[in-house]
Amino acid sequence: MSHARPLRTIALTAVGLIIWSICFVVLYAALSLGCAAGLHEWSLFGVRALNVILGCLWLVHFGLLGSAFLVLWRTQRQAQAASERFLVRLTCMLIVVGSAATLWVGFPVLLLPACA
């Protein structure tokens, strides 16, 4: 929690949701472009290729969410003032929300055919 760049600190409280937004855009874009390019007609070991790609893209975001949490965990000890501890709590809550949202919005890529 550095005070040198307060604007960045404030923006990063929403890091969990920012990652969710990126995941959402990436999945939607990859799906639209993949369908436009006809990728759904290929298959890898009997699994639809586009779904595999989407699934991998989806998983990457959990990695990002996890690292965001680790960074928060390491820096939270420096938070002294009440206002800083408040921001730490807020950031943490929003990472949890972001993870749940990423899970909820993305899991259909494992179940449904991509371009039907």
Binding site: L31, C35, P108
Partner: peptide, 19 residues
């Protein structure tokens, strides 16, 4: 629009009810 995309948006639409 492809079904899977509809499911993304449908899921997000229900999600926003939680907060």
């Amino acid at each position: 629009i492809p079904h899977l995309a509809l499911v993304f948006f449908s899921a997000a639409s229900m999600l926003v009810a939680v907060p």
